[in-house]
Amino acid sequence: MNNNLKKIVVENSDEIVKNWLEEVSKNRSNDYTSAISDELFQSTNREFVNVIFTSVDQQGITTELDDFSERLINLGWPLSYLTEGLQAFRRVTIDYILSQTEKVDSEYFANVLVMVDKWVEPIITQLVNEYSGSWEHTVSLQRVALQELSAPLIPVMENITIMPLIGTIDTERAKLIMENLLDGVIKHNAEVVLIDITGVPIVDTMVAHHIIQAAEAVRLIGSTCILVGIRPEIAQTIVNLGIDLGRFPTKSSLRKGFQTALELTNRRIVKSDDSEESIERLLDSLNKE
């Protein structure tokens, strides 16, 4: 029975393909494929159905199916295109097989359903696994990228680095901040590190505790940590919570913190009063020449 059903499908593949293409094109104007060119849509559909028939003919997952799904993943086509296409293939194939028999009893109908399911289900499973693996890989890469961006350490001058923090700070991120701070201080030979919390919306006991731990760790390896970006509401919260930040310098702005960092590294900003006069003398000398 199964071989007979398979023979019907394979020998009449052209008719089934025609019906399938009509089926998948019905709702095109209402979904994501409406933005795809007709040429690309039709060529992709034909390749898809050919891959399906190859899998049916060889009774298993093929390299053609793996290659096709990988290309669609790289092009950004959603998994729903594949699953809906396979469900359409299931419906069209069952209808065609039943139309070739004058008398359909319950046993024959059940055999048709089971046979077509055996063709379609392994393909759906394989495609879902392919997409899931790709999504997990993409999410993993995005997570790493976000972690790198969530606690950057920027060397702005010899022996001075800045770590700007934006967003909430949880335990996992606090651990990353600690690791980046210690690695960066050693890597950049930093004497002073400025932690800028201007972009941190809430500083509670837990956040303050993590910051204190990070600053203390920096101090233990011979550097100084300056906390900058202390807004009035943050200062009030810290006082109300009874948090002691007296172990290291704090400043209201990054500018003031940077000035302190310069002083700690035996440097200062000097404004030259005769800068304009010097420029004029230089221009005069160039004109004479």
Rank of each mutant, 00 (worst) to 15 (best):
Ala190His: 08
Ser106Arg: 15
Thr54Ile: 12
Leu149Met: 12
His209Glu: 14
Gln236Glu: 07
Glu121Phe: 04
Thr62Tyr: 00
Gln236Ala: 12
Ser278Tyr: 10
Trp77Val: 08
Leu181Gln: 04
Gln142Gly: 06
Leu165Thr: 02
Asn27Trp: 01
Ser13Thr: 07
Val156Trp: 06
Asn266Asp: 12
Gln236Asp: 09
Thr44Val: 04
Glu47Phe: 00
Glu102Gly: 10
Thr224Ala: 11
Pro232Lys: 03
Glu121Cys: 01
Thr168Cys: 07
Leu5Pro: 07
Thr63Gln: 15
Leu21Phe: 12
Ser29Leu: 07
Asn189Val: 05
Lys175Pro: 02
Glu121Asn: 15
Lys187Glu: 13
Val51Thr: 07
Val24Asn: 08
Val239Ile: 12
Val49Phe: 08
Ala174Val: 03
Ile36Phe: 00
His137Trp: 05
Asn159Gln: 10
Pro155Leu: 02
Glu70Val: 10
Glu179Thr: 14
Val207Phe: 14
Thr93His: 02
Thr224Asp: 03
Pro122Asn: 01
Pro201Thr: 13
Val218Ala: 09
Asn266Thr: 06
Ile177Cys: 00
Leu149Ile: 11
Asp183Thr: 13
Glu191Phe: 04
Lys271Pro: 04
Asp273Val: 05
Thr265Asp: 00
Thr93Ala: 06
Thr54Trp: 12
Thr168Pro: 01
Asp95Thr: 12
Asp274Thr: 14
Ser132Leu: 09
Glu39Gln: 11
Pro78Ile: 04
Val49Glu: 06
Met115Gly: 04
Glu64Tyr: 05
Leu72Gly: 06
Ile169Cys: 03
Ser43Thr: 13
Glu191Asn: 15
Val144Thr: 14
Gln87Arg: 14
Ser272Val: 15
Arg28Cys: 08
Asp67Ile: 13
Pro249Lys: 03
Asp204Pro: 04
Ser134Tyr: 15
Ala215Ser: 07
Thr63Ser: 14
Gly242Phe: 10
Met178Lys: 07
Ser140Pro: 04
Ile243Pro: 03
Ile8Pro: 00
Asp274Ala: 14
Lys26Thr: 12
Asp31Ala: 09
Thr138Leu: 11
Ser253His: 05
Arg247Tyr: 13
Ser43Pro: 00
Leu182Cys: 06
Leu262Lys: 02
Ala88Gly: 05
Gln42Phe: 13
Ala174Ile: 05
Val10His: 09
Glu15Val: 14
Ile154Pro: 01
Gln213Lys: 15
Pro249Gly: 11
Gly257Met: 04
Ser223Asn: 05
